[in-house]
Amino acid sequence: MAQTIEDYILDPIIRVDVGIVLVKNKQHQFIAANQTFMNIAGIDEIDKLIGLRDFDMPWSDDSQLYIEHEKKVMDGQRSTVIEPLNGIELFQLVTEKKPLYDKFGCVAGTIALAIVLPENISYSNLASTEKSLANQLYNGLTKMETHCLYWVIKGSKRGEVARKLNISPKTYDFHINNIKNKLEISSISQLVSECYRRGWHKLYPF
């Protein structure tokens, strides 16, 4: 398998038949993939994939979370996760993402290696000793509430979260108030503290 981003740019078809392999540059654009990923994405030619981002894909609603994860990987935080990929149908993947380097040894993007799971498993950090996000959050919170909570934990403010999730500030307020009521929390600072106490800052919301 090619070792640098230049190799993938020259030969973007990754000839691996087991699981999913995909490569992105630092701008989070697809530059290479194997046929399995293209089938899931509903794309029949590699040239049609190159240059696209997650915002252009069937799973665009979750694109910002993928981007945040890739940023962490490029900063050196390697991890293995279980994540959904809502392509031509909903798939659950065990994904390992690693930084990809250029010929000068500089971080130039990410490479993701994934195996498709046969069962519906919710996204969580496998390296964490905490329970899965589904067990911790989905029993009480809606999907949009978990997305709002994720960005609040990361330190994003009201308007920023609303923009990231493409919702109005009033809708953000509605979801945050619901979360506070469900967790019996009265302020954002208490909410963040409680999330850290429970280990939710280590998890991704899907």
Rank of each mutant, 00 (worst) to 15 (best):
N39T: 14
D75Q: 15
D62T: 02
P58R: 02
G87P: 14
D54P: 07
A32R: 05
K97I: 05
F91R: 01
P84W: 10
N39W: 07
G42A: 05
R53E: 11
I88W: 10
H69D: 11
I88S: 04
L100M: 01
A108L: 08
Q77A: 12
L93D: 02
D54K: 04
F104G: 10
S79L: 14
L49Y: 06
Q29V: 03
A41N: 11
D62E: 11
D62V: 03
K103C: 12
L100P: 00
G42D: 09
T36P: 05
E83C: 02
N86F: 11
C106N: 15
D44V: 06
I43V: 15
D56C: 11
D61P: 12
I43W: 09
W59T: 00
K98A: 13
I88Q: 09
T80L: 00
E70G: 06
Q29I: 01
I40P: 01
M38Y: 08
E70P: 09
D62C: 05
L90S: 06
L52N: 08
S63R: 07
N34V: 09
Q35D: 13
P99S: 10
Y101A: 00
L93W: 06
I43A: 12
L85Q: 02
F30G: 07
L49W: 00
N34K: 01
V73W: 07
A33I: 10
K103D: 13
M57V: 01
K103Q: 15
G105P: 02
L65H: 08
R53I: 00
H69V: 04
I82S: 01
L90T: 03
D54L: 08
M38C: 14
K72P: 05
K97P: 02
G76C: 08
T80G: 11
C106E: 15
Q64M: 15
S63C: 14
E45G: 01
L49Q: 02
R78E: 15
Q64F: 15
D102I: 09
S60I: 01
I82V: 10
L100H: 00
G87E: 05
M57A: 12
F104M: 09
E89S: 11
E83V: 02
Q92A: 08
I82T: 01
F37M: 03
R53N: 07
L65D: 06
C106L: 13
H69P: 01
T80D: 11
S79F: 06
A41D: 03
P99R: 02
S60H: 12
S79V: 08
S79H: 07
G76R: 03
V73N: 07
F91M: 02
D102R: 10
G87Q: 10
L85R: 02
F30C: 12
Q92T: 07
L90A: 10
R78I: 15
D44E: 12
E96L: 14
D56N: 09
A33V: 13
K71E: 15
L49D: 01
I31G: 03
L52E: 04
T95K: 04
N86Q: 12
G109E: 00
E96M: 14
R78V: 15
I50N: 04
V94D: 00
K97V: 06
